[in-house]
């Protein structure tokens, strides 16, 4: 565990979270949420929680992103905030 790596990834995680919440396009929000999940996966691999990192990579970054995109495709991309 290298704490510099930890600090850098944590900063990226928070940036991705804020971007996913503020972006004015739902498709973009879904993609940014996928990036956020992947950053978390890196963070957990760095913290030694390999099983959790594996689950997050397949579930969070893979399947949830697909679900978001499918839902946005079936509804609308536009949003007011």
């Amino acid at each position: 565990m290298i704490w510099q790596v930890d600090l850098a990834i944590l900063a990226l995680v928070v940036i991705c979270a804020i971007a996913a919440v503020t972006v004015r396009d739902l498709l973009g929000a879904g993609i940014l949420f996928g990036a956020y999940s992947f950053m978390l996966c890196l963070l957990w691999a760095a913290m030694g929680a390999v099983d959790v990192a594996f689950t997050e990579a397949s579930v969070g970054a893979g399947v949830s992103t697909v679900f978001f995109i499918a839902a946005v495709f079936r509804t609308t991309r536009r949003t007011k905030d």
């Binding site: 979270a17 996913a20 919440v21 929000a29 879904g30 956020y36 509804t75 949003t79 007011k80 905030d81």
Partner: peptide
């Protein structure tokens, strides 16, 4: 205000 944004917030 948007429901998908709320869902993203829930996941975060």
């Amino acid at each position: 205000n948007n429901l998908v944004k709320k869902i993203i917030g829930m996941n975060i």
